[in-house]
Structure formats: C-alpha cells, structure tokens
Design a protein around this nucleic acid. Structure first.
Length: 260
DNA sequence: ATGGTGGACGTTCCA
C-alpha cells in the first residue's frame, strides 16, 4: 500500500503534471496541499476517471487540502479542531477500511509563519499546539494513523542545505522545531528518517536563484506514523525526479510503502 | 541597489 503526500502549488496549474505522476507512481492514497481552489472548481472528474475517490477542503486563492484514495471514504472530517475562528483550509482527515482493518489518514498544510514579527508566527505556533492536542487524543485509538503534509518545519540542521540561511526563519525557529519534536515524541515515526540518516534529503526547492540546480533545498514535507502504522512500514521515497519536469511544483511527492 | 520565481486574483497577496 503506497501512501503519498505532495504540496502541488495549485491544482489548476498542475493538473497535467499531477495526473502524469499518478499514472507513473500509482499511489493508493495521496494527500495534496495547496490546491488553491474552492471545492466547486476542483477538477474532480479527472481524478475520478483515474480511479480515485476524492475529498477536498478548499478555499479561494490560497491553501486548501485534499485526499485521493482508491478506497472509498468511511468518514471524512474537515478542519483542525480547537479554534472556531480559524477559517483557513489546512486540514482534512479520511478514514478507510482495508483488508488489514481501519486506516486513518490526515492531509495537513501547516501555516508558513513568516514574517516572525507578524501575527502569522503565533498563528503557526497555536496551530501546532492544536495539532498536538488533536494527535494526542487520536493516538488513544491505537489505530494505524498517518499525519501527512507540508509541515513548514525544518526539523534538524541536516534537513537544509545551509542552516545559517534559515536562522530566524519561521520554518527553522527553535519554537517551530520544538513543537514538531514534541508532536513526534508523542509516539510518531518520521517515515523518511526511519529509512535514512543522510544529510541533504530534501522535499522542497525554491523557484528562485537556481535552488534546484544547486540542490539548495529543505525537508519540510513529512509523514508521521502512529506505532500501529510504523510497525508495517516497508519503505519511504522522495520522488524528486518530478522537480525536473516542466512546470513543476516547488515541492515533490513523498511516498511510503506500508504492508497491506 | 535592485530583483530574483510562480500561482491566483484582480490592479496585490502569499509562499
């Protein structure tokens, strides 16, 4: 069973690219971020024609998340609990039945948080606190659970090309890294770090200044696995070849393989 | 010193 996460940076601009990738990679479940579309305008027929069920949680212009699945949805929940005033579409949860039993998947898009002297940074930190509380409660279910998405957090210095450049940035601030570490320490496994300790393993390269050509990247797209999911983990891959395609997203898909 | 790149929206914001 292949489960993927990918910040596609706009479904309208990326439709052909995403469909080509789906055909090539053949994931069973895919979490999208930054669909940048309202639900009514999401090109769902193209994905249904490719054999997928689809649930979206979009908004106008920015943000927006979705889950694509070869399994029908037993349940879907939109929005991260904990703040009724939060109108940004950054969280969707799907529940599926597989041969092995229940499987719970989240597609999340954490706030960027820059600039750090604006309200955006405390919004990011409060969002992380809400995610922590939500995840702690969900772990009590003792189910296979995958929290997949663009966390906008560089967990460790080795997760970026040049830590000095990121000093002070919301993606690398100690508060952001600490919150991510605390979340993971609830009992999650960072799937990519379960298979490699290497420096220079990235999921995002900026469009500017030839970042891709210079491999000036960061690792900010993560799949956190509950113990019940992690014990079946068979592999994790960053499909970086997609970054070299025409009209790429600035992020690439991260794909895990779970025994199913 | 400036702008650097890209998507969506609408004459600017977000990343």
């Amino acid at each position: 069973m292949k489960i993927a996460t990918w910040n596609i940076n706009g479904v309208k601009a990326r439709l052909d690219t995403v469909l080509s990738w789906l055909e090539q990679s053949q994931p069973d479940i895919t979490c999208f971020q930054e669909i940048k579309s309202v639900d009514e305008n999401f090109p769902r027929e193209a994905f249904e024609a490719a054999g997928y069920h689809l649930e979206t949680h979009g908004q106008k212009g920015f943000n927006g998340v979705a889950i694509l699945s070869k399994f029908p949805f037993d349940e879907v929940n939109c929005g991260l609990p904990g703040d009724d005033d939060d109108e940004q579409s950054r969280f969707i949860e799907g529940v599926f039945s597989t041969d092995r039993g229940v499987l719970r998947i989240v597609s999340l898009y954490l706030p960027n948080g820059n600039p750090v002297d604006s309200p955006k940074f405390p919004y990011k930190l409060s969002w992380l606190e809400r995610l922590h509380a939500w995840a702690e409660a969900r772990l009590e279910l003792e189910e296979p659970l995958v929290l997949a998405g663009d966390y906008n957090v560089i967990p460790m210095p080795k997760d970026c090309h040049d830590p000095a450049v990121w000093e002070g940035d919301a993606l690398f601030r100690p508060e952001s890294r600490r919150a991510f570490r605390r979340l993971a320490n609830l009992g999650f496994t960072d799937a990519v770090r379960a298979v490699t300790d290497e420096h220079g393993v990235y999921t995002f390269w900026d469009y500017q200044a030839g970042a891709w050509q210079k491999n000036n990247g960061i690792r900010i797209d993560h799949l956190l696995l509950s113990p019940e999911a992690a014990r079946h983990l068979e592999g994790a891959e960053i499909e970086k070849y997609v970054r070299a395609w025409e009209k790429p997203s600035d992020h690439v898909p991260v794909v895990i393989d779970i025994a199913a």
